[in-house]
Design a protein around this nucleic acid. Structure first.
Lengths: 330, 330
DNA sequence: ACAAAAAATGTAATCAATTACATTTTAATT
DNA sequence: AATTAAAATGTAATTGATTACATTTTTTGT
């Protein structure tokens, strides 16, 4: 592998000039520039990024902490991150954490060892051993940490869930089941809050026995639905906190002989690509997944470069998509 | 940030001893080891990985080139890569290439600039400007490059498709549609070959007009199915080259008034998590997606460290999963 | 107690780029 | 032509760890 010194020798100039030709070509005379570029071609020189990163004390790399990369929503967010990162000259290190604190810390430490310049966290944890360590550039996307001052890119989950619940109630449903995410999740709590608000506004009361817990997976949705629908008087609608659990729930409902939406309405959240193609097509909340990623990356870029980001708490718009999994109460 | 020099001063030893305490503790006496470890704790020293990587001339990082990270099958493969990489002490750089040669080359160049030690390629291209450059550690997983000597981790796609076709034929179908991937894909061609073999063995002839092209996406499956089912005499079975296209096809078939599997049988490939939960549950070929990733990573590890891998062409097992999207020809 | 061998530790070069500062060359102004 | 300013280029320090080799200390065997 040719080094900058090889190039400088062949071109008959100093290493500084070679370096400048690459980074600030306008500071180099046309004549030498040509000399250097020819030598670069001749030697097939590629600057050693490792050496450059070491010298400049930055890695041009960021870490993404994601609880599960196989989740279709997260993978879209990551796609958004990756594209923007590439545009801004950053590489993306993948940290699939399975939601494990230990792994999050391992990956977050990469910032301290200068392997990464910043972190995008998609889970609702602070990935540091010491909460006060939260000084490194970090942005929280999707599911934020309540009560921390971490910059965030979020949906207005309260409003979205409220709108969804309103839609369900407007169809005449009064006994509504909930399949929620884990208890410690901020988005879960926000969405529950929105749900309750709509109930209240409609003069309905919240029945905690109608809430089942899932883990955002297909089988967990099926299991929760099974519990809900086995009740002596099952609810006539089920609001799920993501599309996978909704799909699992519908599958289970059909298995148990219920018709969707005739006997029971089911709603999702996220609008993953499968939602539209399911039978029946899923009523859900669509979110601009890629934009979560690109906004988070842009904000992180500002933080890394000590620019004040325009906003430290971005709210992205949602959209209630009414399809055929919801219908009037019979 | 404390450096190794700070630690050495506080511990009253040389930097070499500190370095050794970390990398080869058995070469250091217990007494000094304690001294050094105390100093490390006191200073909260974390070795600068950037400096280490620079000095040792390796990044302990690999790049994964993936055509689309939002594809559920690929994201499982990546999960397998990530887990094994972490176990082996490697970080994973994500290269979402959208199948673009230009991006593949950009990412593959990271090996030349020592940003990465090796490459796992999930698409069927050679990611080098010059094919002879293919000397850096690289492993091809999932969809291999025909006629290159790149090490691979693959499915026996010919056998899998053959088995699937056999199943369809055994149900009495003779007019079978194919929804295939793009023409240049190796897995597409292999699967087509397997399909043809089963036809031949059953004494049936292959009808090129029954083959539609998709791009592995849900809508492309729906469109292809629409073409197939609009024929004066539509096929009674459709074999799709992945689950998404199969789901898209079933959705379209239902929309057009066909019943699956009564009027038409549909099969997928991959056994993504949604396959089981779809209505009807999809007959498909299951693949050990995570193992593609872990095997590829292990092989790459050997290549990077100049160990001869046990095998340079790993074939992974598949499984025909018969569910309810296929049935006897009426 | 001494020599030889083994273990522990230290010194200083090294990796490949960037860049502050010094020096030289060129251009502009009178 | 002389002076000054501006542009171009060069010199050498710097980044933080690793490690070959040199030196010192400890252990072993007699």
């Amino acid at each position: 592998m040719a080094t900058i010194r090889d190039v400088s020798k062949i071109a008959g100039v100093s290493v500084a000039t070679v370096s400048r030709t690459l980074s600030k070509p306008d500071k180099v005379s046309e004549k030498t520039r040509k000399l250097v570029n020819d030598a670069i071609k001749q030697t097939n020189y590629k600057p050693d990024i490792l050496a450059r990163n070491f010298r400049t004390r930055k890695s041009s790399t960021i870490v993404v902490l994601v609880p599960d990369i196989a989740n279709p929503f997260f993978s879209r967010v990551i796609r958004g991150i990756e594209q923007t990162a590439q545009r801004l000259g950053y590489a993306v290190l993948l940290g699939d954490t399975q939601g494990l604190r230990e792994r999050e810390i391992t990956y977050a430490n990469m910032v301290y060892t200068s392997q990464a310049d910043g972190i995008i966290q998609l889970d609702c944890h602070i990935p540091f051993e010491d909460k006060n360590d939260c000084t490194s550039p970090i942005v929280n996307a999707c599911d934020c940490v309540r009560g921390s001052n971490m910059p965030t890119v979020q949906l207005d989950n309260v409003a979205a869930a409220k709108e969804m619940a309103k839609h369900i109630i407007s169809l005449g449903h009064t006994d509504i089941g909930i399949i929620s995410g884990p208890e410690n999740s901020t988005i879960t709590n926000d969405r529950l809050r929105g749900f309750k608000q709509s109930l209240e506004e409609a003069g309905l009361s919240y029945n905690p026995a109608n809430r089942m817990f899932g883990d955002y997976s297909l089988p967990s949705g099926a299991m929760a639905a099974s519990d809900l629908l086995s009740k002596p008087i099952p609810p006539t609608a089920i609001m799920c906190m993501n599309d996978e659990m909704a799909i699992g729930a519908i599958r289970q409902a059909k298995k148990m002989g219920f018709s969707v939406p005739d006997d029971i309405s089911v709603t999702g959240f996220d609008d993953i690509s499968f939602a539209e193609f399911f039978d029946p097509p899923l009523t859900t909340i669509s979110q601009p997944a890629e934009e979560f990623g690109s906004n988070a990356m842009e904000m992180l870029f500002d933080l890394i470069n000590n620019k004040e980001p325009e906003s430290k708490n971005i709210l992205l718009p949602f959209n209630l998509v009414i399809r055929e999994s919801t219908g009037n109460k019979k």
